[in-house]
């Protein structure tokens, strides 16, 4: 019964067959190429960081694992996965946002004081 229930969780997302999943997969490849090929060089770094955040969607699978975990082993694995995936999602989006922030406002948000504070402890000048 428990197995069936967890199967329900795992398979409950989409009741599609293999072919349906493959279709989505193939179409996503084309969309990915198409959308990306228009990105200008100066946005390549934010792009890398932004796509990095998107693969944080692995958090979905990680939660599914932990939500269905009934042994300590699975709980440990699931917990670690959720933790790592959350870092991926949160870090990815926040870092990207910080980079893009710079392109937007021309206001002097000058993070220089904070930077020089931490930079002082690790002097670049030798």
């Amino acid at each position: 019964m428990t197995g069936g229930m967890v199967m329900g969780v795992l398979g409950g997302t989409v009741k599609g067959g293999v072919l349906e999943l493959l279709t989505v997969f193939i179409l996503s490849i084309f969309v990915g190429f198409e959308v990306i090929s228009r990105v200008p060089t100066l946005l390549h770094t934010p792009l890398m960081s932004g796509t990095n955040a998107v693969h944080g969607v692995i958090l979905v699978a990680s939660i599914v694992v932990l939500a269905g975990a009934q042994t300590t082993t699975l709980q440990v694995l699931g917990f670690a996965a959720v933790l790592l995936a959350t870092l991926n999602v949160v870090g990815g989006f926040v870092v990207t946002d910080r980079m893009l922030e710079m392109f937007k406002s021309k206001k002097k948000a000058a993070p220089a004081p904070a930077d020089s504070g931490s930079g002082g402890s690790k002097p670049a000048a030798s």
């Binding site: 996503s28 190429f33 990306i36 090929s37 796509t51 998107v54 699978a61």
Partner: peptide, 25 residues
């Protein structure tokens, strides 16, 4: 690939978009 294992379309879409764009980049 995990998306196939978990029968989860969000993972397939998200992962594949990144796989394709990352390759191009």
């Amino acid at each position: 690939a995990t998306g196939f294992v978990f029968d989860s379309i969000p993972l397939i879409v998200g992962g594949t978009l990144v796989g394709a764009s990352g390759t191009l980049l």
